[in-house]
C-alpha cells in the first residue's frame, strides 16, 4: 500500500443519502484492502458520527461556495486518517471546544464513564443529536482528537476535526 493514499475525498453539501453513499464506498474500499471487521467498524463509527455531526450541526453560509462541508479518508502505513470540516456559527465554538478538550483528557475508563453520564442525563435535540457523537468517536478510536477553528468572518468559523484509527496491534 502507498503511503498517504487518499481513498475518499468529498467537498460540497452533504445530504443523508450522500452520507450513505460515502459509507458504502468506504466499506467496499476497506474490504478490498482486506481490513478486518474491527478496523472497518471503528472507521465506520467514526465516519457516521463525524458526517452526521456535519449534517446536523453545520451552519450554512448561503451566499458562499467556499467553506462547504469537506471530508477525506486517507490510508497511511500505520493508521487511517479521517478529516472533516464544516462552517459553524462562532457562538457554538466554546461548548464544542470544551467537549473536545474534555474527551482528550480522558482515558478509556473515563470516556466510558462520561458516555454513561451523558446518555443517562442527556436529552435528544430537535435535530436528533444526543451529545454523544464526539465521545463515541474518542471511545471507539482510542486516539486523541485534533481540531482547529479557522476564522471565516465575524460570524462564522470553519471547524476541522481530524480522527485517527490506528492499524497497529489489530487483526487486519
Amino acid at each position: 500500500m502507498e503511503k498517504g493514499e487518499v481513498l475518499i475525498n468529498h467537498y460540497g453539501p452533504l445530504s443523508y443519502e450522500e452520507i450513505g453513499f460515502l459509507l458504502n464506498k468506504m466499506t467496499s474500499l476497506l474490504e478490498r484492502y482486506n481490513f478486518g471487521i474491527t478496523i472497518r467498524k471503528k472507521v465506520y463509527s467514526a465516519m457516521v458520527e463525524s458526517l452526521e455531526n456535519i449534517y446536523k450541526h453545520q451552519d450554512i453560509i448561503r451566499d458562499s461556495n467556499n467553506y462547504q462541508p469537506k471530508f477525506s479518508l486517507t490510508l497511511e502505513n500505520d493508521k487511517i486518517d479521517l478529516s472533516c470540516s464544516n462552517s459553524l456559527l462562532k457562538a457554538k465554538v466554546v461548548p464544542l471546544k470544551e467537549r473536545l478538550e474534555k474527551v482528550n483528557q480522558l482515558d478509556k475508563v473515563g470516556l466510558k464513564e462520561f458516555y454513561k453520564e451523558v446518555i443517562l442525563r442527556g436529552n435528544v435535540t430537535q435535530k436528533g443529536g444526543a451529545g454523544l457523537g464526539i465521545i463515541n468517536i474518542a471511545k471507539v478510536t482510542e486516539n486523541k482528537l485534533e481540531f482547529t477553528f479557522d476564522d471565516i468572518d465575524e460570524q462564522y468559523t470553519y471547524f476541522t476535526l481530524r480522527i485517527k484509527v490506528s492499524l497497529q496491534n489489530q487483526n487486519n
Partner: peptide, 12 residues
C-alpha cells in the same frame, strides 16, 4: 449489526 450514538440513547 450497527447503531449510531443517537440510537443508543433511544435503546437506553
Amino acid at each position: 449489526t450497527y447503531f449510531n450514538s443517537a440510537t443508543s440513547k433511544f435503546l437506553m
